[in-house]
Amino acid sequence: MQPSKSERGVRIPLLRKPGAIPGMWALEFYRSNVGKKAVMAISGIPLLLYVFVHMLGNLKLYQGAEEINAYAEWLRFIAYPGLPEGGAVWALRVVLIVSFALHIHAAVSLTIANRKARPQGYQSKREYAVASYAARTMRWSGVIVGVFVVYHILHFTTGHAHQDFIEHDVYHNMVTAFSSYPVSAVYIVANLLLGLHIYHGAWSLFQSLGWNNRRFNPWRRSFATAFAAIIVIGNISFPIAVLTGIVD
C-alpha cells in the first residue's frame, strides 16, 4: 500500500483503493486511468465509423423515396436468409450498445476521479491557455449527444416521438419530421455538438492509444477536423434540404 502521508508528514489523499486484482488482467487493465482512456478511444472508433456510414446512407435521401427506402430494406435483409431479418442490423446494434456503455462508463468514472484530483481550482480569471473549446466541453457535448441519440431512436427507429410515423417509409418519416422547425433545430444543434465532440475525440484517440509519430502527427488534427466537418455538413444538410424544399 502506498503511503498516504508524505515525507513531510502531510496527509495526501489516495485517489483509488489500493490493491491489485490478481488474475483478472482485463479488470486490472481497466482499473487504471490510462487503460480507461484506451477503452474510451477504442470504443469511440466503432461509433465514429458508424456515424460516418450512417451519414453516407442518409445521403440517399437526395435520390428520392424509392432509393432510400430500398436501402433501408436492404439493411434489414443483409445476408438473408443466412441471417434472420434485421440480424445484421442487430449485430451492429450490439456492437454500438457495448461501445456506448464502455465509452460512457469510462467517461463517468474518469470525470469523478479527475474532480477528486483537483478539488480546488484557481481564482484568477484565466484558466485555460491552449485547450480548445471542444476539449473543454467534451462532457457537455457528450451528455447532450447521448440524450439526443435516445430521442433520435424514439423518433426515427421506434416512431414513439414521431407525429406521423410510417414504419419502413424512411423518406416519408424524414420529410414529415424535418418540415417542423423545432425538430430540425434540435437535429442541427445536436449535430453541431456531435461535431465538437468528434473534433476533440477523433484527435484525442491517437494520443490515448499512443499512435504518435512526428511524421504523421499534423495529420491527426486535419483528420479530426475533416471528419467532424464531413459529419456535421452531411447531417445538417438533411433538415435544411427539407426546410428549404430541395427535398419534399
Partner: peptide, 28 residues
C-alpha cells in the same frame, strides 16, 4: 494514478511547461 488525475488531452501541460516538454511523450 494513486495520487493524480487522468489525461483528457487538453495539452495545457505542454503550454505551461517551462522546458517545453511535448505531449508526444504522453502518447509514448
Amino acid at each position: 494514478e494513486d495520487y493524480f488525475g487522468s489525461c483528457t488531452n487538453y495539452t495545457e501541460c505542454e503550454a505551461a511547461c517551462p522546458k517545453g516538454i511535448s505531449v508526444d511523450f504522453i502518447a509514448m
